[in-house]
Design a protein around this nucleic acid. Structure first.
Length: 115
DNA sequence: AGTTTGACGCCTA
DNA sequence: ATAGGCGCCAAAC
């Protein structure tokens, strides 16, 4: 699925690129990433891309949650507690698989990177 | 080649 | 507030 043409950059690669830009201590949602990539209705693709995120390096997958601030992807980490542990290590409070103050630490690429 | 399934989001009842 | 349906695109069956 590699492409030699720059015209259509891999969707996966683009997702990883955005995720890498998420500042420490901040989080974003699948929908926000999809919207930033120009596919507002394709949040599922972001999720699919994240499925293979662990194969990439420098991709803080724990900073990507669903629009409710729920750690929906925690099952895909090494251990069921890995995700929240990583988040808490960055100063993000997690309560019952949900990010506390989600609205405050939310980082929207389409806004933060609009310039 | 048709069907099912996602680490989702949004609208409607 | 909760539940269910549809959309959207790619990969696995």
């Amino acid at each position: 699925m590699l492409s030699i043409n720059d015209k259509h950059i891999d969707f996966f690669q683009s997702v990883y690129d955005v995720v890498r830009l998420i500042p420490e201590g901040r989080v974003t949602s699948y929908g926000a990433i999809a919207r930033y990539l120009g596919a507002p209705r394709s949040s599922r693709m972001v999720g699919w891309a994240m499925n293979a995120a662990h194969t990439q390096s420098g991709v803080p997958a724990q900073r990507v949650v669903n629009r409710n601030g729920l750690l929906t992807g925690k099952a895909h980490f090494s251990t069921p507690t890995q995700m929240e542990e990583l988040l808490e290590a960055e100063g993000i409070q997690v309560k019952d698989d949900r990010i506390v103050n989600f609205k405050e630490i939310f980082w929207d690429p389409s806004i933060e990177l609009e310039l």
